[in-house]
Design a protein around this nucleic acid. Sequence first.
DNA 1: GCCAACGTTGGC
DNA 2: GCCAACGTTGGC
Length: 153
Amino acid sequence: MAKHYWLMKSEPEEFSIDDLQRVGSEPWSGVRNYQARNFMRDEMKPGDGVLFYHSNATPPGIAGIARVDGEPYADPTQFDPESDYFDPKSSPENPRWQLVNLRFERKLKRLITLDEIKQHAEALGDFALLRRGNRLSVMPVEKAQWNYLLNLE
DNA sequence: GCCAACGTTGGC
DNA sequence: GCCAACGTTGGC
C-alpha cells in the first residue's frame, strides 16, 4: 500500500502547530468541501505525512509536520445543531462528512514561507498549493515534493 | 480591508 | 441542466 503525503491548511489564529503540539492529536473537524473530504475519506491512511500549513498568517507557510492518526470516521460536528459545522442534510445513518485525526510530529526548525515555496515552483513541478486560485484546505503532495520542501528547512 | 477565484445554492 | 447570486478562502 502506497504511503501518501499531504498538505493541510489551518489558520494559526484558529488552530496553530503549537496548538497541535499542546493537544497531541486533534480531530480535523469542519472540512465542508467535497474534494478535501474525498482525500480524507478515500485516500488517507494512518501514518501518512502531513505538512501543516499556516494560512491567513503573516507570513503564510509550512510550520510543522503531522501524521494521520487512525482511520477516517464521520465528523461529529455535522450532527450537532449547536456547531458552526452542523449540516442538517446529514445524518448518522448516512453521514456526509468524514475526517481524520492529526497527530503532532514536530515543528519545523523555521517556517518555510509561501514566498520561498514560490521561488522553487519550477523544481517542485505541478504543486497544488501554487495553482492559481487554489483554495483547497487538504491537498496531496508528491513524495519528491515532500522531500524537496523538507530539504529547504 | 480588498478582491480574485471558485464552490454551492436555488430558481427556472 | 443552466447559470446568476451569494458566500468563503486566503494572499496581499
